[in-house]
């Protein structure tokens, strides 16, 4: 089982942040969720050696000061930080955003659904995936929200 590194959430929208926090709680994720409200504060967190490095970053794109793309560019050019997988969580369906973020090496791009249940399902998929990557720790019995198979 993982040494439970924290998950860093960068999201400026208070409602979205609390929705994400809620899904993470509902999915019984044991990792600590650290929340910062823009890319600048995210970078500050990551560059502070007294802070625990996250195992995974959940990144919104439209944020003030340093936005998601700028944040990505900064961490992907850092020898240490670029090893942390980044999953984009956004409302943006723009092709350019997908193109740019994958060009910068993101490990997933999830468009936030409006409906909570659908969002919970998407988050469940994200959590399960990173659990198999040994980066998310979850209470095992809660592994449900069965995925519809093709």
């Amino acid at each position: 089982m993982p040494r439970a590194k924290p998950i860093l959430l960068l999201e400026d929208d208070i409602v979205d942040a609390s929705t994400i926090t809620q899904t993470v709680e509902d999915l019984k994720v044991k990792n600590e969720l650290i929340h910062r409200t823009d890319g600048e504060l995210g970078l500050e967190y990551l560059k502070d050696p007294s802070h625990k490095k996250p195992g995974l970053i959940l990144l919104d794109l439209n944020m003030p000061k340093v936005n998601g793309i700028e944040f990505l560019r900064a961490i992907k050019s850092d020898r240490e930080l670029r090893k942390i997988p980044v999953v984009v969580l956004t409302v943006s369906k723009y092709e350019k955003d997908k193109f740019d973020t994958f060009g910068l090496g993101v490990a997933g791009y999830v468009v936030k659904p409006v409906d909570y249940d659908t969002f919970l399902e998407s988050m469940n998929t994200v959590i399960q995936y990173w659990m198999w990557n040994d980066l998310v720790d979850q209470e095992r019995q809660e592994r449900k929200v069965e995925n519809a198979k093709l």
Binding site: K98, F102, G103, Y109, V111, T125, Y129, W132
Partner: peptide, 15 residues
């Protein structure tokens, strides 16, 4: 495999 495939169907990808 199921989780990987579901994740990459949930994730958008650039054209």
């Amino acid at each position: 495999i199921d989780t990987v495939l579901l994740y990459w169907r949930t994730s958008e990808l650039p054209k």
